Simulated scan of single mutants.
Amino acid sequence: MGLVTGILGLPLAPVRGVLALGELIRQRVEEELHDPASVRRELEAIEHARAAGEISAEDEAEAQQQALNRLTGSPRRPARRRDDRKR
């Protein structure tokens, strides 16, 4: 990088820093979403919620499928509302 380019590009340095930080955050979120340990903790929490009676069997199955889809990278199915399930 030349001296003139460095001086003229200096005002954009904060923008580059924010973009780099945003990219770093995005990478960490992706890693956490697809981390097997994270998915396992979520599945255990779902199982605990079902055992405590906080969610129904249908909600448990749907939440488990969403967690497993995140792990395998399968495309997401649109969530169905309770009204749609009865039809």
Rank of each mutant, 00 (worst) to 15 (best):
A52F: 06
D35I: 01
E31H: 12
M1I: 10
G17N: 15
R80H: 11
P36I: 02
E54F: 07
L12H: 07
L19Q: 15
V39W: 01
Q65S: 07
R70N: 13
R16D: 06
R26H: 04
R50M: 04
L10Y: 06
A61H: 00
E60Y: 05
Q64S: 11
L68K: 02
E42V: 11
R85M: 07
R50G: 05
A63H: 04
A51F: 04
L12R: 14
E62Q: 14
D35N: 11
I7V: 15
R16C: 13
S38W: 13
A67Y: 01
E60T: 00
V39K: 06
R50K: 02
R28D: 01
R76M: 13
R16T: 14
E42G: 05
R16Y: 05
Q27C: 10
E32D: 04
T5E: 15
A45T: 15
P14N: 09
A45K: 09
A13Q: 07
G53Y: 00
A45R: 03
I46H: 04
T72N: 13
R70V: 10
I55F: 01
L68Y: 13
L21A: 13
L68S: 12
E44T: 06
A49H: 08
V29I: 15
P14Q: 08
D84I: 06
L8P: 12
A67H: 05
L8E: 10
A79M: 14
S56F: 00
P75L: 06
P11S: 12
Q64N: 02
R81K: 11
G17Y: 08
R50L: 03
V4A: 13
E23R: 07
A20D: 05
Q27H: 12
L8S: 09
E44K: 10
V18D: 02
G2N: 09
A49M: 02
I46P: 06
R76P: 02
D84S: 15
E30W: 01
D59N: 08
H48W: 12
E30I: 11
G22E: 03
P78Y: 10
P75W: 05
Q27T: 04
R50F: 02
N69T: 09
L24G: 03
Q64I: 03
H34F: 12
A61S: 00
A37R: 15
K86W: 00
G2Q: 02
P36Q: 04
E54I: 06
V18M: 04
V39D: 04
R82A: 05
A63N: 03
A79Q: 13
A20R: 15
R76L: 12
G17H: 09
L24F: 00
E47D: 14
A63V: 04
N69R: 09
P11W: 03
H48N: 09
R85G: 00
T72S: 03
R80G: 02
L12G: 08
A49N: 09
V29D: 01
E30P: 06
G2I: 14
I55T: 03
R76E: 09
R28K: 08
L3M: 12
E58A: 11
R70P: 10
S38N: 11
V39Q: 12
A51N: 08
G9D: 09
A45L: 12
P11F: 01
S56D: 00
R50Y: 05
R40E: 14
R40N: 08
E31T: 13
R41T: 11
P36A: 09
A51H: 02
E44R: 11
L21E: 06
E60V: 00
N69L: 08
R82H: 09
R80T: 05
L43P: 03
E31V: 15
A37L: 10
R16I: 13
P11V: 10
L10F: 14
G2E: 03
